[in-house]
Design a protein around this nucleic acid. Sequence first.
DNA 1: ATGGTAGCCTTGCTA
Length: 259
Amino acid sequence: MTSIASWNVNSIKARLPNILSWLETASPDVALLQELKTVEENFPRLEIEALGYNCAVLGQKSYNGVAILSKAPLEDVLEGLPGDPDDEQARYLEATTFGLRVACIYLPNGNPIKTEKFPYKIAWMDRLRAHARGLLDSEQPVVLGGDYNVIPQDEDVYDPKAFAGDALTQPESRQRFRALVNEGYTEAFRALHDEPHQYTFWDYQGGGWQNDHGLRIDHFLLSPQAADRLESCEIDRGPRGEKKASDHTPIVCRLREAA
DNA sequence: ATGGTAGCCTTGCTA
């Protein structure tokens, strides 16, 4: 079995004790981290390597930043989402590990929708779809995990009306998320769980966690070869309840060994 | 009522 976690940590520096503690106990084979909020030189490589992980890091000062951690070697690392050489935001990393092609995604938030941020999000999703389509041609199973900043359906948010004008629920965002699925990817959590209102993010503001006012925006999309091996996909709410928590909590999927 | 919190290393921007 190979376990793969995705977690938007909201600053690798501020969250380091929480992250080390969770990696030690949950011990995923692969961990995809988003929102490092620092440059690669400041990534706590030694502390994470001490837990047995190899690290691929794409950093950025103050904003964004993604990393892939793996207990196996990381090969053929791709930094950045292809399709726009002028895009300097650190939101995409891809590597091969455990025989899987794994992508770590920090999709643009897109708010407010009346600014240039929203078209940037939509264009980024179009690039992701084009790239994801190409990945299906490979011989390897593909796992696209991360913070998609998309609430796929109204049942994935505590109050759909409150999010009617939000980039995370716009028809343009949801349509592109479905388009990605329609290329041939399986959304792992929804494939295995019917219950609505299973969240991965709770805002710091307004007692989001205390009132279970959350959003389901962290997802795993699996190619057919990966989906055939899907054993489980679970949200681990533990870290969100800890002191100095990230506003996101980890989601973990497990894949059986190749037949 | 355009609020509220957290993290960046700025005194505003992003989420």
